[in-house]
Every structure is written in C-alpha cells, then in structure tokens.
Write a protein that binds this DNA or RNA. Structure first.
Lengths: 226, 226
DNA sequence: GTCTATAGTGCGATAGAC
DNA sequence: GTCTATCGCACTATAGAC
C-alpha cells in the first residue's frame, strides 16, 4: 500500500473527527444541531491548530482565534467552557485516533518483518494526514494539567510498547537480532516523530512520506536483521 | 572517554555561561559589577529554564520568575529589557555553546568510524550536561520572532551538516555503506534529540547517557557498516 | 445560535524611593 | 543595585440583546 491508497482507505477527515468530538462532549458544546456544530468545530479546530502551531497555544489568545475563525468570542464559548478545555479536546481526539488506526492496521499473525513494516508505514501515513494534530500534541503536552499529562505519557508508552512487542516477537522467531528491544523501539519512535515534528525540513528537501517510510524501514532492517 | 571525564574536561558550568552572557550584553544588562551580575544571572536563567520547561515560556509570567527567583520585578529588568530578550539570550547562548563544543571535539583527520563515534558521543554528553538549555531551545523556537527563528533553523541544519560530511567521507573511503546521507544524518539527529527531549523516559528506565551512547553508536554502525 | 459590550483579572513594563 | 507601587493594556469569561 502506498500513501494515496491509505489516505483513501483511512477516510480520516476533519469533518469526521469533529463529529466525534461533537458527540463526545454534549456537556460542553451548547449547540444542538449537528450540522451547525460540526461546521463550526471544523473551523475552530482548524484555526486553533494553525495558530497554535505557529506560535504556541498559550500565545494564541481567544481574540486571535475569534478574529481568524470569524466567530465571535461568545460563539466560541458555545463550543467549549474554557480555553483549557479546548486544549484537552484536541489532545483527547488525537490520542483516540492514534490508538484506533494503529491497532486496526496491525495484523498480529503476520510475519514480524511484515508487521514491523506495516506499523512503521501506518504510523507515518497517519501522522502525515494528521500532521497538525500530532505536532500540536507533541508541543503542548506540558501545558496540560497533571492528570492530562499522565494520559499523554501513557499514550506515548503504549505506542512504544507496540514496537517492543513486534521486536521481541521477531527475536523469538529468530528473524531479528535485537540486543535491547526497549531502546530499539525508542529510537524507532524518535524517527517516526521526526517526520511530523520537523515537517518543514522534509518539505524543504522535497522528501515524500513514501520515500521517508522506505528509508526508515530499510535503515531499521539493516540494523536489526540477522 | 566516558561521561565523567567529558564533564570534567568540558568545564561547562552555569557560571561560565552566565559570565559570557554578561559580557555579550552590555547594552541590556544595567549591572556593572561582574560578580553581582553573574550571581543573579545564574539564578535568573536557572529559574527561568526550570519554570519554562515545566509549563512553557509564555505561560511563565515574570511575576512567577520574580517570586521563584527571589528577585523583584524591578531587579529582573536590570538584566534584560523585555521578556522576549530573555528568551533570545537563552537561545543565543545555547547555539554558541553547541557550535563551540561540537567543532572543538571533532578531529577531521581521524578515521570516519572514529569521527562518527566521537560526534555522537560528544553531542549526547553535551546535551546531557545542558539538558535544560537544549530542551528549552527545542520547545521554544516557535515563540521567537522571524529573524531568530531563521538562526535557529540554520543552527539545526549546521549540526546536521556535520553528520552529512562524516557519512559522505566514510562512503568515499568505502568504510560506510550509506544510500542517502541526508536522510541518514537526519535520523541520527532525531535519536540524539530524543535523549534530551524525552529525558523523563530514560530517567524512568534508568538508562545512563553512556548506555544510550553505546546503544545508538552500535545501532547506527549496524545499519551503515559494509 | 450568534452577536456586542463589559466585568474582572493579571500581565509586562517603569518610575522613583532607598 | 534593589525594592515597592502603579500604570495601561490585553486577556479570559460572561451576561443579555437580537
């Protein structure tokens, strides 16, 4: 599968995500009509992610968000009860999506080499589509309160565990030669994160997600194959 | 060389760094006595880095900084002319230090394999000593103005170029088998950054900088050695 | 469901006493 | 060289008109 196929298949759209947020937050979102709410949520999240990723969530004032989105201050507060809650909504949604897509794509019965490839590729493709969300989550974790930070850390370790399991399975089946599966998973994750954190660098060098995926898979396999 | 030796040799102390800052900013720092200025700068930077790395530079108010450092608002403004300038001072100093240490340690006449090892180790050791500074630079780049952001990007690409050069030299001398030196340097850098960005993770797992350095060097060599 | 107007708070920055 | 007091401003959040 190449990126264009994944994109079509995953059917991850801003609209679908916002519909989920709408249904999950009936207490905070005062608007009742789904069509209206989803339309405005798309606008709000899109604008908030853009502004936050430019200069940070704290630096983005709700006046900025109001001006840029075209919605009034009052209207904004119909979609969240505080600026902090807006932050949490974005974070929660990103986490839910990662877990869903990553576990759905991985076939645990396949050969370790194939599973590893799929996991890396899926992660890169997902973060390519949702770059804004992942960059935001990465950069704004420290602005969350303690309980939300804990969730964020758990989510990170959970993703890493997926790779640890694949590596250990491969070692058991004598297909990989992995000295330290925890550290190996850790550096794999750092390479995957680089794709969405340093997006500007790869854009400037005109490296496509498929080229990067191929390179990373090849690099890792060279390092761990018997 | 192991970390403890490097630490002793590099002689990078908060005080030495603050002395440099003091001498480089005569226009902004109103205090004339070096001893007084350096003592307070150590306090200011130390506190600012701690608070910023906890919750972000923008979220840290100068009142926070004043309260935690024990200096009054008025006293703080004797050491910088605006909050933004404080941000720039920290960033500039971090960049200067990286360039200095990295180029000083690398012996271009050594064998590529040895040079690569030294570069990786030195980078990890330096970021271990200066973790707070590097984490800050990494996270707060987007809060800088455009001209400072440009410098930050240049600095990142400059460090990456060091690795590209080493890899290409190794390829030329038939010691490495590198398909794409730019992307290889890029993923090496992501592994090095992970050490100071995700410091909490390695601390929790009780991985020392020497263990991490050994693992990363070994991993990369496995991937690129003929 | 969306708007404008505004209350109330805390910010960055400075002036002037010591 | 450091402090306290304060200014003016921009912020988050809300109330009430439409």
């Amino acid at each position: 599968m190449i990126f264009e196929e994944f994109k079509h298949m995953a059917m991850i759209s801003m609209e679908e995500i916002c519909r989920e947020v709408f249904m999950d937050n009936p207490a905070s979102i005062k608007i009742k009509k789904e069509a209206v709410a989803v339309k405005n949520l798309v606008n709000i999240f899109d604008t908030a992610l853009r502004l936050s990723n430019e200069k940070g969530f704290q630096s983005m004032s709700l006046r900025d968000l109001s001006r840029t989105s075209g919605l009034s201050m009052g209207a904004l507060y119909s979609y969240f009860t505080s600026k902090e809650e807006l932050l949490e909504m974005i974070q929660n949604q990103g986490r839910r999506l990662t877990r869903k897509v990553l576990t759905r794509q991985i076939d645990v019965n396949a050969e370790p080499e194939e599973v590893l490839r799929t996991a890396i590729q899926t992660h890169l493709y997902l973060t390519e589509i949702m770059q804004k969300w992942f960059y935001f989550s990465y950069m704004e974790t420290k602005n969350l309160d303690k309980s939300q930070q804990k969730k964020s850390i758990e989510s990170e370790l959970e993703t890493e565990q997926v790779f640890i399991d694949i590596l250990e399975d491969g070692s058991r089946k004598k297909q990989f030669h992995v000295k330290n599966s925890v550290l190996t998973a850790s550096v794999i994750k750092s390479m995957l994160q680089d794709w969405y954190v340093k997006r500007w660098k790869y854009a400037r060098r005109e490296v496509s997600v498929d080229e990067y995926a191929e390179f990373v898979i090849d690099f890792i396999e060279s390092a761990i194959k018997k």
